[in-house]
């Protein structure tokens, strides 16, 4: 068996993954164009749906947005502008979409980040415990509860929480306008506003991590190397902690990143329910208009973010699992 050359392999692996990610990013950009410029047939009509407009007004609008040029030329314009960070102007607010996204980016990152970390921690902990105590009351109850939460629409859970605990927590937004501008007061206020949205997001999302961790641990339970570990005289908890969990964790890590898209989806509706001033709420507000440049911008940014996170996951996985390293 030839011994694997690690250095060359890693560089090649990274290049392949990077190349794949670049292709995917380009596909997102193309898809963004097709969805919002080609498929609507006539974006101006979609835009003015339900409003009385004259043909001259339509023509002016078409010219303003460059929609009277051939599609290929439009795509080229769109591509060049994107590369300069120009996502066009919002129909609704007549502001550059890029600026709007930048403003709304960090509240979404805060919400999704906090939610993911808490959900992963909770899911892994519950999943591990459930697998150890297979078929126990804890296993059955925790799995049942996780499935029940998983079956609920995120936004509905948010609405119910809002109705039930509305008095204790702010009903929406991120900060009260009258909070003192010093760091501590601001942070505490944001935290106060964050509680309900994060609980909602975590409740719906954690189930998948728990179920995956549970089943991948159960898969490992029959593995021969655990018999070896037991034969060596290790205590049961050491057998689990040192040998079973590191192996079971690997497939779970991939899933955490693969499901990031679903967390983002959950965040959109949570932001809509709690008026959290992030990309999700921006999307929600743009749907009714419909503000196509804003939708296009958030689509591209959210998709690209998830793609980049997955690229990071691939790289991370390579350093976590020695078996992948050798390929």
């Amino acid at each position: 068996m030839p011994s694997p050359r690690r250095g060359g392999g890693t560089a090649r692996y990274l290049l392949t993954k990077l190349g794949g990610a670049v292709i995917s990013l380009f596909m997102v950009v193309v898809l963004g164009f097709i969805l919002f410029r080609v498929m609507p047939g006539d974006p101006v009509k979609t835009m003015t749906r339900g409003h009385p407009v004259t043909n001259e007004q339509l023509a002016i609008l078409e010219h303003r947005y460059g929609l009277d040029k051939p599609k290929i030329a439009q795509f080229w314009d769109y591509l060049v502008k994107l590369l300069h960070g120009d996502f066009g102007d919002s129909y609704q607010y007549s502001r550059p979409v890029g600026d709007m996204i930048l403003e709304k980016l960090w509240p979404t990152v805060l919400l999704v980040g906090t939610g993911t970390i808490l959900a992963v921690a909770l899911g892994l902990w519950l999943g591990t415990r459930a697998a150890w105590q297979r078929n126990s009351v804890f296993d059955k109850a925790s799995t049942g509860i996780a499935l029940a939460f998983w079956s609920m629409p995120t936004f509905w859970l948010g609405m119910i929480l809002l109705t039930a605990a509305g008095g204790l927590f702010p009903s929406g937004g991120m900060v009260y306008p009258d909070t003192p501008p010093d760091f501590l007061s601001q942070a505490l206020d944001i935290l106060h506003h964050l509680v309900l949205p994060v609980i909602t997001l975590v409740a719906v999302v954690y189930a998948q991590y728990q179920l995956v961790m549970r089943s991948s641990l159960l898969e490992e339970m029959d593995a021969d190397y655990l018999t070896t570990a037991r034969a060596k005289g290790l205590r049961d908890d050491l057998v689990r902690r040192r040998h079973a969990v590191p192996n079971a964790l690997l497939p779970t890590v991939t899933l955490v990143f693969l499901h990031l898209g679903m967390v983002v989806a959950g965040a959109i509706t949570v932001e809509a329910v709690f008026s959290w001033p992030g990309l999700g709420q921006m999307t929600y507000n743009a749907i009714g208009v419909p503000d196509l440049p804003v939708l296009q911008g958030t689509f591209i940014v959210l998709a690209a973010a998830v793609l980049v996170m997955n690229l990071i996951a691939d790289v991370l996985y390579r350093f976590l699992d020695p078996r992948v390293r050798a390929v």
Partner: peptide, 20 residues
């Protein structure tokens, strides 16, 4: 498949149902 797998599907569904 990998591309569509990581793409946030709700965002794509929103886009599709907005334009159709």
């Amino acid at each position: 498949v990998d591309f569509f797998l990581v793409l946030p599907s709700l965002v794509l569904a929103i886009a599709l149902s907005t334009v159709l």
